[in-house]
């Protein structure tokens, strides 16, 4: 862990991983789209609207996974003060917010034809909406302070507090009567999805995960460059007699 926390080593590794992640994302998303839209059957109950699942479920998994990553990185940052942990969490947040928004919108588009409503305030839907606001709050808090270190610290605390919401989302459908159905893929007695639908779902999920990985590497690289630029500007300003003289 501490080996990876070194920005230079991270950059070296990231440069090697990025093309693979990007390639895998493209391949899986294309294959998943092909299977999901053309070569998979409709559902015996939902008909063709089952295809919305192939974007909704991977987006929901990513929304939860990315938040978990942010909480983990925030914990590392608070305890061990790895600057890279803060940079990773900060770079992941807008991606997670995007996935959560996607989950909400595609879920709504599936709910209308299946349930007969765009939205209900049941425990699952409400807790996912809270997740979206947690992402927004986290991003806002990161940028709310002039003192970057204070912003990073308070945002990390918020990320950790908000983590209680993640198990609530996951198990809301089992703890309470909700309109949303329980889990189909990750369950003790094996998936309750026919293999012809499970294949495109898993391909899309792999595609989403690889896409996130590639984008995260790009964004971390970008943040490390920004840090370097800030440092260089400070050095230049200190060396510049016009500025120093003021």
């Amino acid at each position: 862990m501490s080996r990876l926390a070194n920005p230079n080593r991270f950059q070296k590794l990231s440069r090697r991983v990025l093309p693979w992640a990007a390639g895998l994302a493209g391949l899986c998303l294309l294959a998943g789209l092909g299977l999901g839209l053309f070569f998979s059957p409709g559902d015996y109950q939902q008909g063709e609207s089952v295809r919305i699942m192939y974007v909704h479920v991977p987006a929901a998994w990513m929304a939860l996974g990315v938040y978990t990553l942010i909480a983990l990185a925030s914990g590392l940052f608070l305890v061990w003060k790895y600057p890279l942990a803060d940079i990773v969490a900060r770079a992941a947040a807008p991606l997670g917010a995007g996935f959560t928004l996607l989950t909400l919108v595609t879920g709504s588009l599936w709910g209308k034809p299946t349930w007969g409503t765009w939205w209900v305030w049941d425990a699952r839907l409400t807790s996912v909406l809270i997740l979206f606001f947690l992402y927004l709050g986290y991003i806002a808090l990161q940028n709310a302070f002039d003192d970057g270190a204070r912003g990073a610290k308070s945002a990390a605390v918020l990320a950790l507090i908000g983590f209680v919401n993640v198990p609530i989302i996951k198990w809301s459908v089992e703890w309470w009567h909700t309109l949303h159905q329980p889990a189909s893929v990750i369950r003790l007695d094996g998936p309750s999805i026919h293999v012809s639908m499970l294949a495109p779902l898993l391909l899309m999920a792999a595609g989403f995960a690889a896409f996130f990985t590639a984008l995260l590497l790009i964004r971390v690289r970008s943040a490390l460059l920004a840090r370097k630029i800030r440092a260089l500007r400070l050095v230049q300003a200190a060396a510049d007699p016009h500025i120093r003289g003021r």
Partner: peptide, 15 residues
């Protein structure tokens, strides 16, 4: 999409 096109395509488009 068997009448569900109005829901399926916007979902993929938005994604």
């Amino acid at each position: 999409m068997d009448g569900h096109g109005a829901f399926v395509w916007p979902a993929y488009g938005f994604a």
